[in-house]
Simulated scan of single mutants.
Amino acid sequence: MSGLIKSSIARKVAMALSGLFLVFFLLQHFTINFTSIFSPDTFNELSHFMGTNPLVQFALQPVLIFGVVFHFIMGFVLEVKNRNARAVKYAKYSGGANASWMSRNMILSGLVILAFLGLHFYDFWIPEMVHKYVEFAPEDPTRYYHELLEKFVSPVRTGIYVLSFVFLALHLWHGFASSFQSVGFNNKFSVGATKFAKVFAIVIPLGFIVVSLVLHFNNNH
């Protein structure tokens, strides 16, 4: 870990790899959530599998939590190191000539996403742990859709989720594309990879927003 913190290249590569890992999880998470708007039964089946499969619960879930923590720690380390490395500040900021808004505010969008993850853990992960390992409640394979629907009754809470996904899009817009460069992906496929990353940064957060709004309005019918 100390070697990662001391080496600028190693920090960027570690940040990129952890980010790519989280992008893969994000796609999987979106795929499951998206089924909730057209097939509650499918959503229940997939959620039940993920919630009861030992490999997912006791191997992949800890790895995911470590990946989230590691990514954000490395993000803060990079931000601090980059700020300290700037011996001379810009005398005048010339708009987007130096860097895009997204690249200059990755730490801001990251903090918003981190706060959102705290809310998401409070809404879903903690109740799930209490249900299974504190209350030892009997497993109900059909409970997941109803529990998901309850979280989007409030327009305020739904609005927070929507806003968080907007910041996620901003974070991905720069972060996903730059991760390919950080791991040395610089060849004839680079342009295509960058375009894919930009499309992903829009489509996936937008999909999450659609799910949030559909669930919210389903509560009012």
Rank of each mutant, 00 (worst) to 15 (best):
F196P: 00
Y90A: 05
G3Q: 10
E135T: 14
F21W: 14
I209L: 09
V162L: 09
L4T: 11
H174W: 12
F76S: 10
F189I: 02
I107V: 12
V56P: 01
V183L: 10
K198M: 11
V211P: 07
L20F: 13
G192F: 14
F66K: 03
Y144S: 02
F49K: 12
R157G: 05
V203Y: 11
F121N: 02
G118K: 08
L27F: 15
A169V: 09
F196V: 05
N53L: 13
L111T: 03
H216N: 14
N105R: 08
L117E: 00
V214G: 11
S190M: 12
T42L: 14
S178D: 12
L119K: 02
I126M: 06
F116G: 01
I32F: 15
K132T: 00
V80A: 07
L4A: 01
V130F: 01
V199T: 08
H48F: 13
F189G: 13
V23D: 11
A137E: 05
R83T: 02
S7E: 04
S190L: 11
E139H: 13
N53C: 13
N53M: 08
L163F: 15
M129A: 03
N53V: 07
F176I: 05
R86N: 10
F25D: 12
K188E: 10
A177R: 12
N53Y: 11
A99P: 00
A99F: 05
N105V: 00
A197C: 11
A169C: 10
S154T: 04
H221Y: 14
M1A: 00
I209P: 05
F21P: 01
S164A: 15
A115M: 06
F136W: 12
R157I: 09
N186Y: 07
T31H: 13
L119C: 00
G110F: 01
E147D: 07
A16T: 09
A16K: 08
H48W: 12
D140F: 02
Y145L: 00
K132S: 07
K188G: 07
H216L: 07
V162I: 14
V214R: 09
K92Q: 12
I32H: 13
V211M: 05
G67M: 14
A169N: 06
L26R: 05
D140N: 14
S212W: 06
G159M: 12
R11P: 04
